[in-house]
Structures are given as C-alpha cells and as structure tokens.
C-alpha cells in the first residue's frame, strides 16, 4: 500500500532523513518511533506529498507521490503534528470543508460529518468556533478531519498528544479499529502506545531506520541478557556475593529495601539464553534466607528505545545492540 524506496531528504545541507526504505501492507498498523528530530514528521510529509524527497521514490496505493500526486493524495488521510485548523471556522463548517475538498458531496458528506463528529465525541461543539476549543478538542477535530473521507491510508503524526487519559484510551481503540481496512502509520513518543496499537514498529534515529520488527520480537531480539528480579530477606553483602557465584550470573544489583521485615529487591542479569532461576533459588534456600519473590523480567520498550538510540553502534549493527550496556551496572 505504501512503499518507500531509498528516500533521502536534505533541508539545505542538513540530512533530515537518509536512505529510508520500507513497505506497509494493506490493513497494517505501523508505528513510527524515534526521539525528537529523528525525522518522523519529515518522512510522513514525504509520504503525504507535502515535502518532495531529495532522492528516492515513494508511492501510495501504486501511485507515485510526485508524478501521480493527485491520485496518490486521494488515498490519504493526514493529521500533521501541528494539527492545522482554521480557527475562524466552526467545527461543522471546517469538517464540511475538509470533506468537500476530499471530494465528498451532498447527503454522503453530511452523513460522514455526523459520523466523525460522533466517533470523535464532538457533538457538543458542533457549532463552536475552533478558536474557542481547548487543545484536546482541537486534536479531536484534527483526527475527525483525517478520517472523514474514509481514506485507505491514514498518516497520523502524534495523534494522542494533548488528549486526556480517558480519551487517549478511546483514541487508541479508534486507531486500532481503523486498522484492517485502512493502512496506518502512527508516530509517537509514547512507547507503551506502540505495543498497544501497532503490529510493526520502525525505530528511526538521526534520519535512519535502526530497527524494524513486531513490538514483542523487538524485546526478545534485543534482550542480550536474561534478567531476574528477586525479593529476599538477609544480609545484603552476603546475598550479593553468593548470587554472583551462581554460574552464568553477570551482575547483581540491590535495587531497594522493602521497608518491613528486612526484605530487599535485587536485580540479576545473566547470560543470554540461560535459565538461572532454579540455581538462584537453590543458592538462596541453602543460605536459609527468606525468598519472597523470584521473577524473570523482560525489557520494557522504553529500555529498548533507549538502547537503540543511545548506543554508539546502534546504527551499524542491530544484532549486537543488546550486548552494549547502558547504565545498569555500577
């Protein structure tokens, strides 16, 4: 549905995006993740045809975005990150206008306006001037505008920013439901959001793709170490030295003490692929310490994100990413 082939974009001499290629299949929800200035918005502007790429080609629904621009644009619904709205118009006038320039008319247009107003919970503000809406409601009008013509392809640049938590949940539901018939690209800073709504994630950093995978695979692939958390009562120093002797263990860190009864939490990292939990338990029991909890923990998306975008060799070698340590050891 969407196809980018070695897209490069220079703003003057500054490369905002370098050599990006990927495909998005029909019905897929793709997450776009990256720190500020990574080039997410720039890539989206290229896909929507607003910014022409310096090099490379991009097509939407089989139409090249430069040479067959109008045809490509007919397939696209777009919410830019600035949420552009005509502040001098009422919500209903605005939505009607946006529908009209997307080639809706008459009865169908009216139905679509009513429908998106309902979907985005804007009924109360139907005749309010946009200049009088709060940030969150403007965001909703922006989303409403992007889906009014039921586009095949939806490009949403940080769609949940500025929306209250309840509405955020609803908006994510909405986005998820749009997948299937629509093809979506959603950019965001909010990492859990990606695993909630996206089937595939592209992590982009300094204008380059550093990882592409399913959110859950990303976690396993990057987990260079197995990690276990335990709560134990006992003398800290002895516990640490005993556990460090367990084969495969690379580091033991005391995280915090649980106020009553002398329990403390420890975080243990071990070589990749090793199952050390039983060994740990045996060692603790042998020393007659009280074991309250023993749990293997995966890496959160936040940590993956940090590793991918803060390690030096992140862009060179995706496979070794997890082995680079960031800041867990003392």
């Amino acid at each position: 549905m969407i196809e980018l082939d070695s897209i490069t974009k220079y703003y003057g001499n500054y490369p905002a995006v370098t050599d990006i290629s990927f495909r998005v299949e029909k019905g897929e929800i793709l997450g776009f993740l990256g720190p500020n200035g990574a080039g997410k918005s720039t890539t989206m502007k290229i896909i929507t045809g607003f910014v022409p790429p310096t090099e490379g080609t991009c097509s939407v629904a089989g139409n090249d975005i430069l040479t067959n621009s109008l045809a490509a644009r007919r397939h696209i619904g777009y919410l830019p990150e600035t949420v552009p709205l005509y502040t001098d118009m009422t919500v209903s006038d605005y939505l009607e206008f946006m529908g009209r320039i997307r080639e809706l008319k008459g009865e169908h247009l009216r139905k679509r306006v009513d429908s998106v107003v309902q979907i985005c919970r804007l009924e109360e503000y139907f005749d309010t001037f946009i200049s009088k809406l709060s940030k969150g409601f403007r965001q909703r009008v922006g989303i409403a505008q992007s889906i009014i013509h039921e586009p095949d392809v939806l490009i949403l640049d940080e769609p949940t920013i500025g929306i209250d938590p309840i509405q955020v949940v609803e908006t994510r539901e909405l986005i998820k439901n749009l997948g299937g018939e629509h093809t979506l690209i959603v950019s965001t800073h909010i990492l859990p959001e990606v695993s909630m709504i996206c089937e595939r994630v592209i992590i982009i950093h300094e204008g380059q793709i550093v990882a592409v995978d399913k959110p859950e695979n990303l976690a396993t692939r990057l987990r260079g170490t197995e990690r276990v958390e335990i709560d134990v009562a006992g003398p800290t120093r002895e516990i640490v030295s005993a556990l460090e002797k367990v084969p495969g263990v690379e580091s033991v860190n005391r995280k915090n003490s649980l106020s009553d009864k002398g329990y403390s939490s420890f975080e243990i990292e071990a070589e990749r692929g090793l199952e050390i939990r039983s060994e740990l338990a045996i060692s603790i029991v042998k020393n007659k310490w009280d074991l309250l909890r023993l749990e293997a923990v995966g890496m959160s998306l936040e940590e993956i994100f940090l590793r991918l975008t803060t390690t030096e060799d992140a862009t060179q070698d995706g496979e070794n990413l997890g082995i680079e340590e960031v800041s867990n050891n003392e």
Partner: peptide
C-alpha cells in the same frame, strides 16, 4: 501560518 496549507496541498486539490 496556521499550517493548514499542509492539509490543502496534501488533499486532492491543485
């Protein structure tokens, strides 16, 4: 200024 040109120019409008 409002950035609405971005929406106009990405709609099927010449």
């Amino acid at each position: 200024k409002l950035g609405t040109l971005e929406l106009l120019l990405t709609s099927p409008v010449r």
